[in-house]
């Protein structure tokens, strides 16, 4: 409900506002120009660098680089990672955000900080901790070896390391948002007799859906792009435990720069596609809303 209100607001803001609630034109222009220049230098140029290298030898070589068996295996593995990791961390994120944002309890800041921790752990360390646990010399190593269970240098290890690295994304996106929204609406729903799940589906979820979507998109991007941690636990076996980022490193080290950047450009494209998808959803919802609004005013 509040989400729809927010949408209406953003929709309303498209029209020129009174000078009291928006900035003079020159300020707006200045801010737009400043942010475009900043983004051009920090985002667009690296992106262009990637694509110019990828296409340096023409489209044919570009397509060939992506159709290579090892590259395809890497793409498959990366997609598999996203399919496993993103749903798990999304579910966790929503549950954790509910517990943290909707209730007052002692030690909340501490708990949030623990959830933040994986951000600040160096990717190398993120990989290392799983090697320390499950590696041959690790605490569980001998037991795992005697039972022929492989975690490190196989897919489970890559899943674990990626789960760890992307652990906070959804939760962290939702917590500030849900805190800002408060608990009145949910409380009202509960008082009126809705069950917990009903309250969540009907009241909370519509309110947080955009935040949730951002979280999922970020989580997905990072899952696919993670390099450092995965590099420690993967074992770099060609066509088998190489994810796309590792395959890129491989190709680069083979002096196959065009192919390396071709795979990299594909990853950049994947990120852009998810975001365009998000924009489309947003646009569709606002269409729906304005249609509803028209209906209401007609009443």
């Amino acid at each position: 409900m509040a989400g729809t209100v927010a949408m209406r607001r953003t929709a309303a803001r498209r029209q020129p506002d009174t000078s009291a609630t928006t900035e003079p034109t020159w300020v707006r222009t200045l801010l737009i120009v400043v942010s475009l220049i900043f983004l051009a230098i920090f985002l667009l140029l690296p992106l262009l660098a990637v694509f110019s290298q990828a296409l340096a030898k023409g489209w044919e070589v570009y397509a060939q680089s992506l159709w290579d068996a090892d590259a395809l295996a890497a793409i498959r593995l990366t997609l598999l990672m996203a399919l496993i990791v993103v749903p798990i961390n999304t579910v966790f994120g929503v549950i954790a955000a509910w517990a943290i944002a909707k209730f007052q309890f002692v030690g909340k800041s501490l708990l949030i900080t623990f959830i933040d921790l994986p951000y600040s752990v160096s990717p190398v360390i993120a990989g290392l901790i799983f090697v320390l646990l499950f590696g041959r010399q690790g605490w569980m190593g001998p037991w795992l070896e005697s039972h022929d269970i492989r975690i490190i240098f196989a897919i489970p290890g890559i899943v674990l390391a990626t789960l760890f690295v992307t652990f906070p994304f959804v939760a962290r996106e939702l917590i500030p948002l849900m805190q800002a929204q408060g608990t009145e609406e949910e409380e009202a729903a509960c008082v009126l007799g809705a069950s917990g799940l009903q309250t969540f589906w009907r009241v909370t979820l519509p309110n947080i859906k955009w935040g949730l979507l951002y979280g999922v998109i970020l989580c997905n991007a990072r899952t696919m792009g993670e390099f450092g941690a995965v590099s420690v636990v993967s074992g770099h076996i060609r066509g088998e435990t190489n994810t796309m980022p590792l395959q890129i490193e491989n190709l680069y080290h083979e002096y196959n720069i065009t192919a390396a950047f071709a795979v990299a450009s594909l990853m950049a494209l994947l990120a852009l596609v998810t975001l365009v998808f998000k924009s489309f959803l947003q646009w569709k919802t606002s269409q729906q809303l304005s249609a509803e609004e028209l209906g209401y005013t007609g009443d």
């Binding site: 041959r136 190593g141 490190i152 770099h236 060609r238 491989n250």
Partner: peptide, 20 residues
């Protein structure tokens, strides 16, 4: 023959830690 390439020291460490 499956191949794994990387920095020499890192590869040695992987074998120590259980890369088969």
């Amino acid at each position: 023959v499956r191949m794994s390439h990387g920095g020499s020291g890192k590869q040695a460490r992987s074998v120590i830690d259980g890369l088969a």
